[in-house]
Design a protein around this nucleic acid. Sequence first.
DNA 1: CATCCCCTCTTGAACGTTCAAACCCTCAGA
DNA 2: TCTGAGGGTTTGAACGTTCAAGAGGGGATG
Lengths: 382, 382
Amino acid sequence: MATKVTITDVARRAGVSRQTVSNVLNSPELVREETRDRVREAIEALGYRASQAARQMRTGRSRLIATRIEPDRDGINGSVLDRFLHGLTASAARAGYRILLYAAGDERSEIDTFDDLVGSHEPDAFVLTSTYHGDGRPAWLRERRLPFVTFGRPWGNAGNAGGASGGEAAGDPEHPWVDVDGAAGTAAATRHLLDAGHRRIGFLGWPPGSGVGDDRRSGWTRALVGAGIDPAGLDQATDDGVADGEKAARDLLRAEQPITALVCASDSLALGALHAVRSLTASGQLTASGRLTAEGRLTVAGQAGGEEGLPVRVIGFDDTPVAKAVGLSSVSQPLAEAAAGCVGLLTRLFDPPSPGAPDAPEAGGPRTHVLLQPSLVLRQSS
Amino acid sequence: MATKVTITDVARRAGVSRQTVSNVLNSPELVREETRDRVREAIEALGYRASQAARQMRTGRSRLIATRIEPDRDGINGSVLDRFLHGLTASAARAGYRILLYAAGDERSEIDTFDDLVGSHEPDAFVLTSTYHGDGRPAWLRERRLPFVTFGRPWGNAGNAGGASGGEAAGDPEHPWVDVDGAAGTAAATRHLLDAGHRRIGFLGWPPGSGVGDDRRSGWTRALVGAGIDPAGLDQATDDGVADGEKAARDLLRAEQPITALVCASDSLALGALHAVRSLTASGQLTASGRLTAEGRLTVAGQAGGEEGLPVRVIGFDDTPVAKAVGLSSVSQPLAEAAAGCVGLLTRLFDPPSPGAPDAPEAGGPRTHVLLQPSLVLRQSS
DNA sequence: CATCCCCTCTTGAACGTTCAAACCCTCAGA
DNA sequence: TCTGAGGGTTTGAACGTTCAAGAGGGGATG
C-alpha cells in the first residue's frame, strides 16, 4: 500500500517477464490467452497501474492535452468556454487523455506558455479556443509540428497582417478544427421571426473584422435576403456588452422605420436589447403593441397568448445562464459535441485509422473539419 | 530544433557534467558563480527545459495539482467554481505547478478517479471543491497520505453518517482548507439593510444540513439578533433554483407581517425573489411603496432617489454574472485569493518553511486554515 | 609534511517503462 | 535428421533526470 506497485511486481507474481506484462497491456494479441489471464489477475490483485512518467520517458507520449482557461471577460459569455472545457475533460478522459490547464493573457504570453509546456510536461496536443483574424498561434504550433485542434475556424487573414511569426495566412495547409455554424444559427433565429410574421428584423452585432461576428451576421443577412427583404439599415455594430447593446438597440427601435424584432450576436447584446425594449415600452415610446411584464417576459397587450400586433422580439446567442434566467430566447451551441469533436480529431491524428477503414468515404485528405449545427432555444422573449 | 535538448547537451556545451547542470537548476548555491553563468548561458542558447517526466521518475514529484471541473448545475452558480478554477491555474503556475482536470459525477466516481490518477499521472496534490456533510473524499485521501486542500471547510458529520469509508468524522485531524466566511457576508448584507432602516429582513436559504447554507443563514440570524430583532418566521428554506426562490419569496412577501427586504443564500434564489417582488408589485399586492422599473431596478415610487417608504430590497450571494446583468446586489467571494490560498497551503506542505522562519507567530501546528472575508457589492436592488 | 576539511565538480546507479532483438519451443516440410 | 518458420516469451538497453558517493585540489591545521 505504501510503496508503488511496478510492472516487475506484477511480472513476479504472474511468473512472467516484465515485457509480457507490458504486452498484456499494450498488445494483448501477442500473448497466449492463459498467460494473459494470469497476468491480468496479478494486475488486479496488486492494483497495478502503469506509471505515466515512465511510460512517457520511453514512448514520448504524455497522454496530456493542454488547453487554456480564459478569464470570463464580461462574465456572461464566459460560461460558454467553461461548458466546452467540461465537455473536453469528459471526452478526453474517455479517450484516455487528461486536460492540462494553463492561463494566459495575450497571444505573446500564450505562446510563451506553449514553449514552456512543450519543454516540460510535453502535452501530446493543444486545443485552442477563441480563434481570431491573424491568430499567430496555429502557425507557431505548426512550425514545430505540434498537434493541435482549434475550436473555431481559422478566420483567414483579412484584417491586419498578423504578427512577425506570420499569422494565419490564407493558403496555408489547414489544420483540424471544430466549429459551430453560427450563420446557420442566426439564420434559423431570423427565419423563426419571419415565420412569426416579422419583416423588419434587425441584427445587433460586432464591428466587422471578427470572424465569429461576421459569420453570425451573414446568417441573418442570408435569411432576410432569402425572404426578399433588404437588410440595409436594419443592423448595428457595437462592442460586446450589455450597455453597448442597449444603446445600439435603442437606435434601431427608434429609427424612422423601427424594427420589430432583433437577432443578436451574443446574449450580452441581447440582454441590453431587452433593457432597451423595456424602458422604451415603459415610457410609451415604442410603436409596437407588445409589452414586457415585470418578469422580463414579452407578452401581448390585452390577453395573454393572443397575437394582436407584433410584440418586439429578441433572440440572443450562446444560450448562457443569463438567457435562461431572464427568459431570453437564444441560439445554443452544442458544446459537448464540439468538445468530443476536438478529441476525436486529435485521437485520429495520434492513431490514424487504418487506410482501408470502412468509414472513410472522402478521398484525398482525412476529414479534419467539423462544422456543427446549433439549435434555437425558444423562451418568453420570442 | 527537431530533437529534444537534454541535460547532457547542455553539459557538453558548457564543458561540465550532467550533475553540475542539474545543480545549477536545483541547488545553484553549490556551483561556483563562473560555472553557473556558463551553464546558464548554455541553457539559454540551447533553449533547454528539464523533462518533467524524467524528473518525475527520479523525484516522484509531478508538479501537477488535480482538481475537478463541475458541470454547472443550474448554470447560474456554476461560474463561481469557474472563476476559482481560473485563479487556481494562475496561482499554481506562479508556484511552478500545473492544473490537471478531471470530471466526475458522484463521490464514488470521483474517488475512482483519484485512484486512477494516483496510479498514472501521480499528481502531487488534490484540490477539492464543494465540500459537504459526510464528505468521504478527505478520508480516502488522508488514508493514503495524499496531500490535498479543500476549498470549503470540513462541515463535520452532522447529517447522515457518511459512506462506508467513514466520511468526515468530527475530531479527525483536520486537513488544510480555505474558505470564505459566508456568515460574515450575509451578516454584512443584513446590517446594510438594517442601516437603510429595514427591520423585517427575511432570509431565503436552503434546507438545514448543508454546511454552506447553514453558515450563510447563521450570519443573517446573528445580525438580526444583534439588532434586537427576533428572526423567527422571517426565513424560508427551499432548494436552489429561480422558481423555488420565487415561490418561497412570495410566501415571505405575502405573510401577515411581510418582510421588506431579503437576504438570499444564492443569486439563483435572489433572482427568483426579484421576480416575486416584481410580479407582486405589478399586480398591486405589495404593501411597501417601492416598485421595480422595467429594467429590473428597484426605485422609489414618485421621485427617483427619494426615500419615501421602504422599497423591497434583495441581496444575493456569489456575485455571479447574472447578478451583474440584472442589477442584483450580492455578496462577492474573493475567489482569486481563495485559489491563491489553496496553492499557498499546498506549497507549504511540499516545502515546509524553515522552523525558525520569521513569520510563524502561532505556536503548535502550522497555519493550515484560511478563512477569507467576502465583500458586499451593491447594485440597484438594494 | 601529513592530515583534515571544504569547495567544486564528476561518476555510476536508479527511477519504471517499452523497444529491438534474441531466444526457445514446436511443428511442417524436405 | 535437418532446416525453416513462427508463436510465445525473455533479455538488454535506453529514455533524461537526480541521488549518493566519490574525486581532485587548495588551504588551514597540527
